[in-house]
Amino acid sequence: MRKAIPVIRIPSMRSDVEVRDGVILCFFMRCSHGDVASAMWRALQAYRRAISPNALNWYGADDGDTLPLDDKGWEHIRERMLERPWAGAARHVSLAEATGEAGGYHFNYDGRQLEHPLHWRKKGATSAVSFSFPTEYLLEHGPAHLRALALELGRELPFSFGYASLAFVSHPGLWHGVRKQLVGLLERYPGLDLYLLSETGNVIGTGARGAYWMTFLGPPLLNQLGGQEALREQLCFPEVTFEPMERERLLLTLGEWPEAMDTEKGPPPAQYRALARLLEPYLCEEGGLWPPMTREYMHHWLRRLCR
């Protein structure tokens, strides 16, 4: 299976790896931080148990510094997520395997206070979280293990939309420096996600971001798509499995393994295209002023499987 997943290593000018191949798992919740804090902490602990004890080593401090994630650091993170009173519109938690390079394991959480003046007028603001894994984790444990872990994490969270996918994995702050190097790879491998958690979390609302290896659908999006039975009729592919979840939610898995979709070897699988076309009316709009990932570029890239 390794042959079907490209090895991506994009170095910085210092020769540190700024982007690598991996797997990303994201959830978007139209809820304020206070409503999901306890569930988010439980999900983080489940992620922590599933990975190597030394996989998360650093965290972003309040002053912007990066500090070792020791016992004192974990207590600081617990207090930040569960106990500290609100002091603004958002709460950010960033944990990483390595500092100065991409690593494979990251936890990033943007908890938003939707009642805050900066957010309450935005229909698209959500609290959002991402968990990343190196490709080696998938290959060592297998796709069934990762799917079970994704389900465990998803059951904790009141998501409207979520997904798991092969991805370009990096620290959030490193994308800007390597964006031009990613364009060719994005075009060749449409199955590798370019995740922009903070930006997506600001605009996705109760919409979608695309069709992925694992696609989590919750209310109201699932109902807008016609519900589980309608999706079963429209996605009648042997590769697609349906996993009903509590609170009227659903996990769609589009194949045993995730697909990089190397365009030099053939078109994307039909089941991905079919789901992408169903989701197209609900896709969010992303993109800023940092070429080449402009709003126009991201509009087309997010719809790459609809064509």
Rank of each mutant, 00 (worst) to 15 (best):
G227T: 12
D70P: 01
P269H: 08
Y105G: 03
F28G: 07
L166T: 03
C236E: 10
D70L: 10
L279H: 10
G100S: 07
Y137E: 13
D110N: 05
L235G: 04
A61W: 11
D71F: 02
L217T: 08
E156K: 08
G60K: 11
A4W: 08
T253W: 08
G103Y: 06
L279M: 13
G205I: 06
I204N: 08
H141Y: 11
H119Y: 09
G34Y: 08
P281L: 11
G210Y: 08
E256S: 10
F216K: 04
T206Y: 04
R42A: 12
R249I: 05
E79S: 12
G201N: 05
I51S: 01
A46T: 04
L139F: 00
H176A: 07
L174Y: 12
A98D: 07
R42I: 07
E256T: 15
R307Y: 09
H145D: 10
V23D: 04
Q181L: 13
Y272T: 08
E75T: 10
A274Q: 12
R147N: 07
E229T: 15
H141S: 09
D71N: 14
E140S: 10
I204M: 02
A144L: 06
R247E: 14
Y59R: 09
T66P: 05
L302E: 11
R49Y: 03
L250T: 05
R2F: 07
R30T: 09
G154H: 02
L278R: 15
G100R: 02
